[in-house]
């Protein structure tokens, strides 16, 4: 679904870095290497076991008759959605999409200048690009729902807090993906323009934007996909959208209605995902 721009995809799928700088190991390094691998594995297993003990991970409890029965009962009720309820939640569903649209568009527009400041081929002055990146990375450490919880506490319950949360989240995501795309553009046209005496603004308008624009739109669409999913759960912290209803129905143990909401959300998310993926493919 979101195959093209997974956030950080550039890092994940990056080509192999040049061969490591350390000198080629000699024949004698075989032993230590073997021990290193062994210790890495041992250390890893110890960490996992300790973590498991810390959270009281209890597989016996998970697969116990009681919890299996609970899970089974819920899944059973979830499998019988109450379709008559679907009409009543449509307004909230629409609000969810509205939050996602507003948050995506505002966040993406705000991301453009910051992306330009972060890209070293546009902003060679490190004194600007490095702090800009640090700010961006700090914004990206906070997940959307956490932003939402804070904004609800500040501005009160409602869609506005949700929109603000998605603005911040979209801003971080779009700015990062876009500045990486800008840094990857073909430097040829820029050099040609510099040689013919273009100034910085002309360079950006005629050299950078035409090359980076398809990528930017593609990232905006991808962010929109992520935001629709995020918006569907914003209501859990009071930030508007369908999540509020889902929270209420789950709390009052109306799993048939919760199931209607979940399925409807899945359908809308899938439709938007497919439409957006299709558009992205046409863009690039």
């Amino acid at each position: 679904m979101n195959s093209a721009p997974v956030p950080d995809a550039a890092e994940v799928g990056a080509p192999a870095p040049p061969p490591s700088k350390k000198p080629a190991p000699t024949l004698d390094s075989k032993g230590p290497q073997r021990f290193k691998a062994l210790f890495t594995w041992l250390g890893f297993i110890v960490v996992i076991v300790v973590c498991g003990i810390r959270v009281d991970a209890n597989l016996v409890q998970l697969f116990s008759a009681n919890s299996m029965e609970n899970m089974g009962r819920i899944l059973g009720e979830l499998s019988r959605p109450d379709w008559s309820y679907a009409n009543r939640i449509m307004p909230a569903m629409i609000e969810t999409v509205q939050i996602a649209i507003a948050g995506t568009i505002i966040g993406s527009v705000l991301a453009v200048p910051v992306a330009l400041l972060c890209a070293v081929n546009i902003m060679p002055k490190k004194i600007i690009s490095i702090p800009a990146r640090i700010v961006l990375n700090l914004v990206r450490t906070i997940p959307d729902l956490l932003f939402a919880a804070v904004f609800v506490a500040v501005f009160g319950i409602g869609a506005f807090a949700g929109m603000l949360a998605l603005i911040f989240f979209s801003f971080g995501l779009v700015a990062k993906l876009t500045y990486e795309a800008i840094e990857a553009i073909d430097p040829g046209p820029l050099e040609a323009m510099t040689a013919s005496g273009a100034n910085k603004i002309q360079l950006i308008v005629f050299g950078v934007i035409p090359q980076a624009l398809p990528y930017f739109f593609s990232y905006v669409l991808y962010t929109f996909e992520v935001n629709v999913r995020a918006a569907s759960v914003l209501g859990f912290v009071g930030a508007g959208g369908i999540g509020l209803h889902l929270d209420q129905q789950l709390n009052s143990l109306r799993y048939d209605r919760a199931s209607t909401i979940i399925l409807l959300t899945l359908v809308i998310v899938l439709v938007i995902d497919y439409a957006s993926t299709y558009l992205r493919r046409k863009l690039l």
Binding site: A16, P19, A24, P25, T26, L27, S29, K30
Partner: peptide, 9 residues
């Protein structure tokens, strides 16, 4: 002498 180099090098 290349025994411990990576093949793609």
């Amino acid at each position: 002498e290349k025994a411990y180099s990576r093949a793609d090098q």
